[in-house]
């Protein structure tokens, strides 16, 4: 994610399973220039294998479940938000890494640009979502993850003030409304209803949020320390290729197409789809869908005999 530098041999992340190091083909000195091999020398378990190449494995299976997930939308093209151009505008996913103990600052809530503590945050919702020019659909999870992220900020530092800029607050799951209400009442999170028109920055690098309050549509400005963009969930770039390999269809947005009222069924028999590659969903829904898809596959594989 380019939040900090990592070596050319790395662990995907600390809770990764399996927990093995991966060599970054594009950056490894040995694989690119034929020199180095230090890792091989320091590894006490002789686990480094430069010869390892991609291999093809043939499997004969009764059913296939597709769970390839999603990608966060890259907001660089939405110039009004200034992502990459402005110093202190980041995506929600980058922000999640920032406040994570294993992240680039060891979990401190500071700006990467000048290491200044963050005291005021703007969460900008529906970046690329519900937007006919980009992704017309709602990404479902961002309203709640913004609330969570704002809460986390406050837990890192009780003096942080968060503002969430959104059109609707979509909090329809179990306990979600209560979560939002507590965020407002106990964590002082403020919701501003309306679309953000433009983000600019001042000399100190503070983002200036230009927004229209829904009420009266007046353009207002707010200076913050950090702006966090809730980018849409989009299909992964290789989805088309995968769909072609599998011989299944995609929907109008590029997610795997499933049947109405038969939510796991792709357009091809025996191939099932679940999770965010079908439509954006949160963790509990992903987990429930995963169990369900497993049942569909088991019906085929184990049939009428337990």
């Amino acid at each position: 994610m380019e939040l900090r530098r990592r070596g050319a041999i790395y662990l995907y992340f600390l809770q990764a399973i399996p927990m093995v190091m991966t060599i970054d083909r594009a950056h490894c000195l040995y694989l690119t220039r034929g020199v180095c091999r230090i890792c091989e020398k320091v590894c006490t378990r002789e686990a480094i294998d430069f010869e390892q190449t991609d291999i093809e494995i043939d499997l004969n299976v009764g059913a296939i479940i597709v769970t390839v997930g999603f990608d966060p939308f890259d907001p660089t093209s939405l110039s009004e938000f200034g992502y990459k151009r402005l110093r202190n505008v980041m995506t929600a996913l980058e922000y999640e890494r920032l406040i994570c103990a294993t992240g680039p600052t060891g979990g401190q809530l500071i700006r990467l640009s000048d290491r200044k503590p963050v005291k005021k945050i703007a969460f900008i919702q529906c970046v690329g979502s519900r937007d006919v020019k980009n992704n017309p659909y709602c990404s479902t999870v961002c309203c709640m993850h913004a609330a969570k992220e704002a809460l986390l900020a406050r837990e890192h530092d009780p003096n942080v003030q968060s503002y969430v800029f959104s059109m609707d607050v979509r909090a329809h799951g179990k306990g979600f409304q209560q979560y939002i209400a507590r965020g407002e009442e106990e964590y002082g999170i403020r919701y501003v209803r309306g679309r953000v028109a433009k983000i600019s920055e001042n000399l100190e690098g503070n983002p200036i949020i230009g927004y229209e309050e829904t009420f009266g549509s007046i353009v207002e400005k707010m200076e913050v320390d950090l702006a966090v963009l809730a980018t849409s969930f989009v299909p992964r770039p290789d989805t088309k290729d995968l769909a072609a390999v599998l011989g299944v269809e995609l929907d109008q947005y590029g997610f795997f197409k499933t049947a109405h009222l038969a939510p796991f069924n792709s357009t091809r028999k025996g191939i099932f789809v679940c999770g965010c590659c079908r439509e954006p969903v949160d963790i509990p829904e992903s987990v429930a869908q995963a169990s369900g898809a497993a049942a569909k596959a088991a019906e085929i594989v184990t049939g009428d005999q337990p």
Binding site: H260, L261, A262, P263, F264, E285, A288, Q289, A290, S291, G292, A293, A294, A295, K296, A298
Partner: peptide, 14 residues
């Protein structure tokens, strides 16, 4: 309804 169906299969799996 869609989600009910998802969960119906899901619970069956569990």
């Amino acid at each position: 309804v869609d989600e009910s169906i998802v969960q119906g299969y899901g619970a069956a799996s569990r």
